[in-house]
Design a protein around this nucleic acid. Structure first.
Lengths: 156, 156
DNA sequence: GTACACTATATGCCGTGGAATATACATTGA
DNA sequence: TCAATGTATATTCCACGGCATATAGTGTAC
């Protein structure tokens, strides 16, 4: 009985999680597309490359829990658009070292403002500080556990 | 300064939100596919149809914040697989009334167990009760606000 | 009742991700 | 050294969603 109630609560929590993610992702993507010509997933790639210069395709894939094939194609597009570059990896010729180009660095610096401003507008108005703190803590804890256990890591 | 810190916190919160959603969605999809031959999005469609018999395509699209075109195609697939049916809407011949078939009802009843069990396993082990309650409350509040303001509702 | 604007859904084209496979390279062990 | 195995990435095929458009039906003003 208490187990059933808990399970039902989990389902509602999951539905709310997915719905919040979808709507925030869409709304931020709209702003990023309009002002910078990129979408949320590209912003996330570019941010990661800025913060982890010299990373490999597999690092990006692990970070975002998506397949390496999709990641490789995503990097192809950023490269074609002139925002990222693959440099040979002297330690392992199977992989490349990824980094932003100067254009990519400029772009992500500009896009970061619309991203953080948009997020502040979307989140700050609706949740008070204690709720935000509790939400942030819970999600950070959950994410750490899911990554530790490799939960939902794609095949390849 | 405090605004910048808050904005940076929002970014981390968003990243954690998306990563948790991705991994949970993937992990539940793996189990659902293995045991019932469906994925998470189909489970969510079927659950909604079970709880809202006689709904229309637009109701599904609004619930999940996806386009009506994609929704129509999703219903096509469920119909082709024999799990959902479109019945003529006597009040408006442009739309159909959607409902589960008997097979669809059986399927969602079975899948619900693996879904809720999986979720309990993935969430219950890592977050204690107060954290879960706070998470659920914050997400419910946020979702309500986002839906009220039509944030991130797709074009069509 | 009829033209006009509006709404609900379906369809086509395109871009993107997943999964499987191919290819190149690295590592291990004899 | 060389064969065998493992690893990193690229590529291919397929399914799905977004967006624009087409189609059919509804409602309203006159």
């Amino acid at each position: 009985m208490s187990g059933d109630r808990a399970a039902a609560g989990f389902s509602g929590l999951f539905a709310d999680l997915v719905r919040c993610e979808t709507r925030l992702y869409n709304a931020l993507g709209d702003r990023l597309r309009e002002r910078h010509g990129i979408v949320t997933s590209q912003y996330e790639f570019l941010s990661y490359l800025r913060d982890h210069p010299g990373c490999r395709v597999a690092d990006l894939a692990a970070e975002f829990a998506i397949g390496v094939g999709a990641t490789s194609k995503g990097v192809d597009r950023l490269e074609k658009l002139g925002w990222a570059a693959r440099r040979p990896n002297p330690a392992d010729r199977r992989s490349s070292l990824l980094a932003l180009t100067d254009d990519g660095a400029r772009l992500v610096a500009e896009a970061e403002r619309t991203f953080t401003d948009g997020l502040a507008e979307l989140l700050g108005g609706t949740l008070d500080d204690p709720a935000l703190t509790a939400l942030a803590r819970a999600l950070a804890t959950l994410r750490t556990a899911l990554e530790r256990d490799r939960v939902g890591t794609p095949t390849g």
